[in-house]
Simulated scan of single mutants.
Amino acid sequence: MLWILLAWGSINIQAQTLRKSSVNKRKARTSIAKNHSKKSSHKKLSQPKLKSKVKTVAHSTLTIGIAKDGLLRADSLFKSGQHNMAFPLYLDYKDTPLMKASSLKNLAICFKETGDFLNAQKYFKRVYLYDSDPDSATELGKLHLSGVSEIPKNALLAKDYFEMAYRVGNLEAGFQLGRLYWFGANQIEANFPKALDILTDVGQKGHTEAQWMLANLYTKGTPNTPKNLPEAKKWYRLYNQSISLKNTLISNN
């Protein structure tokens, strides 16, 4: 009987030990499960952030696309002569990296047409510094030659701009430079032979105002351009041909 009781006690101790072991293992599994659940929950929370980033990139791409469309529309309106409609579109993007040099130049022209010469100068200068644009250099020369608005009058700086543009073939710059040498200006002495060479060059290449000026000079005669009616007729004829060509081009467009 004693042996039976001892055996039963031993079995009971083993059972309790196994139970405690099982309970401990269960607690351990529960703890692991909770930690795993937390980790899984953390991963799930991170997903919306990823989606948010994707959404932000998509929105940014869409915004850039809309901006490019706006600028393309502005360029199209400007090209068709509707500067007043293109102007507000350009203003929306004037200081963004999306503005190309050609669009910046159009914006500068719009400012000039509205009488805002300071902003016109600002954007013509930006285009000139960007790619040494001869048209912008010519416009800057004109602004400094006349000294409009708060822009200081500076004939020497104007001459520099005109010379830079004329060297690369800008006819308007050549005409302005020729007039500057013909009439002279503050700090710039008149140089009639040089003026005549430049005016003749751009006139032969089709600049209408140079052709008209030369025709008048030879018609009236001056100490530096003696009266020469055959030469005057030649320039009047070239002027009329240039005007006819321009009118034809305008009507075709």
Rank of each mutant, 00 (worst) to 15 (best):
A173D: 04
F162N: 00
T61V: 11
D160S: 13
T56Q: 09
I64M: 02
S146N: 04
S103T: 04
S149C: 06
V57M: 10
I188S: 05
A101L: 02
K105L: 15
A58N: 02
L118Q: 09
K68G: 06
P88V: 15
S60K: 11
P134L: 14
A58P: 01
I188R: 03
A108Q: 07
A158H: 07
K194V: 04
S149G: 07
D116V: 09
N186P: 03
L118S: 11
T56D: 15
K153A: 11
F175H: 15
S60N: 05
K53G: 04
L104F: 09
V57Q: 07
G184N: 00
G115R: 07
K55M: 15
A137G: 14
E189M: 13
L180I: 00
A58S: 14
R73L: 15
M99A: 03
E113R: 00
Y130P: 00
K94C: 15
V148W: 05
Q121D: 06
P97W: 06
G115I: 03
Y130T: 11
S136R: 06
L77Q: 08
N84C: 00
S60L: 12
F87N: 01
A158K: 08
V127L: 07
S103Y: 07
N119L: 13
A185F: 01
G81F: 00
F162Q: 06
L77R: 05
G169C: 12
V148A: 09
L171W: 04
W182N: 12
K122T: 03
N119I: 04
E139K: 08
G65F: 09
N84Y: 06
G65P: 01
G141T: 05
L71W: 01
L177F: 11
L129M: 14
S80D: 12
D75P: 02
E150R: 05
L72F: 13
G178N: 05
D160P: 06
Y128D: 12
N186I: 03
K55F: 10
Y166F: 12
K55Y: 10
L62V: 09
L129E: 15
R179V: 15
F78A: 14
N106P: 00
K105G: 09
K100Q: 15
A86S: 11
R126L: 14
M164G: 04
E172V: 03
